[in-house]
Amino acid sequence: MSFWFTIREGFKGFRRARLSTSLTIISIFFSHLMIGLFLLATVNFSRWVDTFKNRVELEVFLEPGADDNDAQVLARQVRAMPEVEQVRYISKKQAAERFEKEFGRSVYDVLQSNPLPTSLIVHLKPAYRNALSIDRLVRQLNKMEDVDEVVYPQRVIALIDRYLNVVYIGGVTVLLLLLIITFVLIYNTIRLTIYARRDIIEVMKLVGATKRFIKRPFLIEGLLQGAIGSVLAIGAVWGVSLLIRDHLYSGLLPVGTPIWSLLVSGLLIGYISARFSVAKHLKEI
């Protein structure tokens, strides 16, 4: 009985402050739509970055004097490093074949001998495919015996990392701002409902309702606002992904399970802001 009473009173709060409730739901909807679109962009952007970084390899050139045996020893050492996923050994002969494949002429035709050095092609584990880890690894490799030079697309990797950081920090800042705005709006809506329902709160106190009992409908109201706004946002993100996939880019990945974090966030922000508002404003009645 008391449970349904609380739920019913929670819904009544909606009707009492219709305009501010609608505004709050709309703002939860928009802030969560933004978060959802951000998630959608992140999922797709990181897949694109991963595909690119997957192709990143370090080429470790050996000293001209190093022979096959030295190369095998070095390969074994490199393979044992924690950052390394795979090492491929390119002998002088294979290097010559690669040259021919790339330039269409044999190295012997151009230079009469094969000056191409032996090398190791190093693939990194996904966690280490960033500028910082690569730099550290390259410094380590350079110090090793028989290593002449390490070549890799340093500039591109640094650039991607820098932009990724800017995008993430910018995105998270905007999202935090949106959440703060949503907090203020819910806080204020609950304040308005509390004032709109002053009479009922006064009677509740008079007939001996406990504080918790008086608070509950307002918390339910905050939760409901959060749930409605965020579920609408989840629907909208889903719709937007379908539209993009059908009309713009068929390779679009959906957000998947993390989309439900929007519902969690909606419920949380609804509950927390209602709690703060109730704690502050119920006393004033």
Binding site: M1, S2, M204, V207, A209, F213
Partner: peptide
């Protein structure tokens, strides 16, 4: 009934 509902009295008793 409000005075009873907010104090958790059951429906039939109310």
């Amino acid at each position: 009934a409000f005075a009873l509902r907010v104090t958790g009295v059951k429906g039939r008793e109310i």
